[in-house]
């Protein structure tokens, strides 16, 4: 493990739960590592395999998907869709040569700011242990998706 390594983690957060939990964590002055870049999504069900792949392609060391608790999705089943897509993406990452542990889905409610902080810490720790992604940064010549 490289002690100076600061992982870059893209966190796709659902507007109705994880994003609110992250907001609450801020309001409550809870500290969590600044390694995550939060992208708000209307629902984790909106997230597609392509989004995760583009994040990794652009050089993310890890991707965290944070959706509602199972059974309490604002759109009924968006988080279940996301769960299956995350699992499919893990297989793709493995095929491409990246560790599937770099992608993780967690479920947090809007009130669980402490839980959100713990999930972020744990994710940063996991990715830090894995080390930097072996996928080097995208060159300007290549087409990249917008993330």
């Amino acid at each position: 493990m490289n002690n100076n390594f600061e992982p870059k983690i893209v966190a796709f957060c659902c507007h109705y739960c994880a994003y609110a939990a992250a907001d609450l964590a801020g309001s409550g002055r809870l500290q969590y590592p600044p390694n995550i870049r939060i992208i708000r999504s209307p629902c984790t069900g909106r997230l597609e395999i392509d989004f995760f792949m583009k994040a990794f392609e652009a050089g993310a060391d890890g991707v965290l998907v944070a959706g509602c608790e199972e059974g309490s999705c604002h759109f009924k089943e968006g988080n279940y869709l996301a769960k299956r897509r995350v699992n499919t993406t893990k297989q793709l990452l493995l095929e491409a040569g990246l560790e599937p542990e770099r992608l993780r889905m967690v479920n947090v409610s809007a009130a669980s700011s402490q839980k959100f902080v713990e999930y972020v810490r744990d994710m940063v720790e996991t990715v830090a242990k894995l080390g930097p992604t072996r996928n080097k940064k995208t060159t300007t010549k290549e087409k990249t998706g917008a993330i």
Binding site: M53, E57, G97, N135, E142
Partner: peptide, 14 residues
């Protein structure tokens, strides 16, 4: 798009 991303990642790793 998904296959292309995976191929780009695999290509850089290898």
């Amino acid at each position: 798009s998904i296959i292309s991303s995976a191929l780009r990642i695999a290509s850089r790793i290898q």
